[in-house]
Simulated scan of single mutants.
Amino acid sequence: MAFARNIGSGNGNVDPLDRLWPRRIRSVIRHALSRWEPAEFIDAAELLASELVTNALQHGRGDVRVLLTFADGCMRLEVRDDSPESPVLRDASDTNETGRGLAIVRAEAHDWGISDNGRTTWCSLVLPSLSPTP
């Protein structure tokens, strides 16, 4: 899935219309994973998607692309934008209102990383079972 950001997103800001994208992506993730259990797995996947998409909108450039793949017992989520600047994992203090996105990804994901060119941030979750529930 790909979408174009509004002109007001980037440089630390998210345009009000772009604030709808994390919710839309969560809905796509929930639908894609709706046959898997437990529900906590789906909740974690939605949280990771929200954080990565919001980060791309807030700090990236150009269109945002989201890719969800399944292989080797893992779900992999990739979020790409056109910014060559790598996302930065920060230590947000208790008084900071932002800066926790990648820390949340690091805490919730089985694994995560950033592509060498800085344009793709990815994370993975181990699937709870290899067979979808009926």
Rank of each mutant, 00 (worst) to 15 (best):
R35P: 11
I29T: 11
V14P: 00
I7R: 11
E37T: 01
E46D: 12
P16G: 03
D15P: 05
P22N: 12
R23L: 13
P38E: 09
W36C: 08
G8Q: 03
H31E: 13
S9E: 03
A45E: 07
N13Q: 12
I42R: 02
N11K: 09
A44P: 06
N13I: 11
E37I: 00
A44D: 13
N11T: 04
D43K: 05
R35K: 14
E37A: 03
L33D: 05
G8R: 01
D15F: 09
A44T: 15
N6S: 07
N6M: 03
E40C: 07
S34E: 10
R24E: 14
L17A: 11
L20D: 08
R26D: 06
V28G: 06
G10W: 01
I29G: 07
N11G: 08
D43Y: 02
A39T: 11
D15A: 15
H31C: 12
A39I: 08
P38D: 09
I29Q: 07
N6L: 01
E37V: 00
A44E: 11
F41C: 02
P38C: 08
I7Y: 10
R26S: 14
I25L: 04
N6H: 05
R35Q: 12
E40P: 05
I29A: 08
I25W: 04
R24L: 12
P22F: 10
D18L: 00
G12P: 06
D18Y: 00
F41D: 00
W36A: 04
L33F: 08
L20C: 08
L20T: 09
L20P: 02
I25F: 05
R23I: 11
H31P: 10
A45M: 09
